[in-house]
Nucleic acid binder design. Structure first.
Lengths: 124, 124
DNA sequence: GCCTATAGATGTATATTGTATCTATCCGGT
DNA sequence: ACCGGATAGATACAATATACATCTATAGGC
């Protein structure tokens, strides 16, 4: 643990970045830099280039995605990624586990909301 | 990354275990062993004693909780934990960030559900 | 005495992260 | 021609976190 310094993130990398990238690629081919912005727009603020490029390469090693270089009309060449058949399956599974997470989350938040109020001062 | 072996967890420790423990303690004092079972009952299957006890100690160092030994009528003594005032604040903040996470999750799942179906075979 | 359930804690190898840093290309301005 | 900024991708390394196994100890049943 340690919980030392910046505890207030919202990054949640390994559990959200991966399904998030798979989803975005299921919506269409893309490249790292663009995915980074899309991921950030989705609200995952902690997304950072280092991790993102790593995940993409790792997913390629896993054969969830495949990629190739593509020249850009303006700027350096990009590595375009597409979801593989296997990756689409991975997305399905990933999503199923996210549904489970959502349920746990909802339960937890409900329980929080029904927590008895701190000091219920009796007002006569 | 690596995503080597068991990717199919559901553990989600650092982001759920902490708020979860804070919530459970907000519901009333408890001790590690019991919290472990409660956490598991909540659906967090990956919870394991090692991590849990460490989180509790870490939270105590942070003064989110405080604890003392209490003899048990049957079995070894227990370390009873209660939420501190500061811990209650921590819970509030934790919950707020979980709400954010829930929203991202819902968005993501919605987007998944509206994904165009793979191969829409036209049936004449 | 021995076994099991309860209870808490620690050691350690490995995995994951955050951060900084590096390379390179294209474009606009001067 | 040269510079700086935006775009694009990648990697190295230290710091953290996690999973897993292991260890201690107590009470109760047999």
């Amino acid at each position: 643990m340690s919980m030392t310094s910046t505890d207030s993130n919202g990054a949640l990398p390994r559990h959200y970045l991966k399904p998030c990238l798979l989803l975005l690629l299921a919506e269409g081919p893309s490249h790292g830099y663009e995915l980074l912005e899309q991921v950030r727009r989705m609200g995952i603020k902690g997304a950072e280039p280092g991790g993102l490029y790593r995940y993409l390469r790792a997913m390629e090693k896993e054969e969830m995605v495949s990629s190739w270089w593509e020249p850009s009309q303006a700027g350096p060449a990009r590595r375009t990624y597409v979801l593989t058949e296997y990756g689409r399956n991975g997305l399905n599974e990933s999503v199923q586990s996210l549904r489970d997470v959502r349920e746990i989350l909802v339960t937890l938040l409900d329980r929080f909301d029904t927590l008895p109020t701190k000091v219920a001062v009796s007002r006569p």
